[in-house]
Amino acid sequence: MSKVWALAGLVVWELYRRKDFYVLFVLTALITVLMGSAGLLHGVRAVRYVEELCLLLIWISALVIAVTTTARQLPAEREHRTLFPLLAKPVTRTEVILGKALGCWVATGLCLVVFYLFFGLVSAVREQAWPLASSLQALWLHWWMLAVVVAMSLLGSLLFATPAANATVQFLVAGGILLVGRHLNTVALGLPEPGQTLIYGLYFAIPHLELFDVRDLIVHDWAPVPWWACAAATLYAAAYAAAFLVLAAVTFRRQPLQ
């Protein structure tokens, strides 16, 4: 396990040394502050509108960070040939996969903490209230959703030729699931038979990332999700992430290095 942590630490360190995260964070903060002050100028107290915007930007940024960071890992190791000295050490390829996944996940988690602190600041300034439990829950669920995204992207980086192709596919898949994943059952029920079973099967097969999207609950001041449901969602995400990682490890072990 210490080897996995060493590999994970390397990923976090790289993200810290690279500047993408700062760019995205500054962009998010800037847009939120600009839009927030635009509302102030018109004399309306648009709390929910600013919160919603801020959360949307956070979701987009986090997805971008998670996908681009993860999609880059293994191709970069190959391209820079750092994979060889790495695998010459007593680490297995499974450990490499686990370390990369853990690193990307922890790194995106750290980014999320920064983002949500900013969000807390925004809502505290605007609303003079800080629903701590809801925010923590949103952060937690968001982080677990990104675990699935990271695992998927890592698997994709072994299957697709370039990181760019992989990232595009990941964005499409994640975006598609977030937008229509919840409604696939409704769609299926409206179809004739072969299609119905097919789409319903797809509905159960895909990881329902939209489950972890509790933005509306925060924005509109609902109470937090019951903790048992939160735990169930966590298990759900962990199961999917594990499945994707197993697939990735098997693929990686069977692939030639050159």
């Binding site: 210490s2 820079h80 750092t82 060889f84």
Partner: peptide
């Protein structure tokens, strides 16, 4: 092992690189 062509993580310093590889040997 010393590979034929040497490429290492360019964002690390020499010390950090050695620490990283050292940790892989536990």
């Amino acid at each position: 092992y010393l590979p034929e062509q040497t490429y290492y993580y360019r964002f690390l310093s020499a010390e950090e690189l050695l620490r990283f590889y050292g940790r892989l040997f536990q």
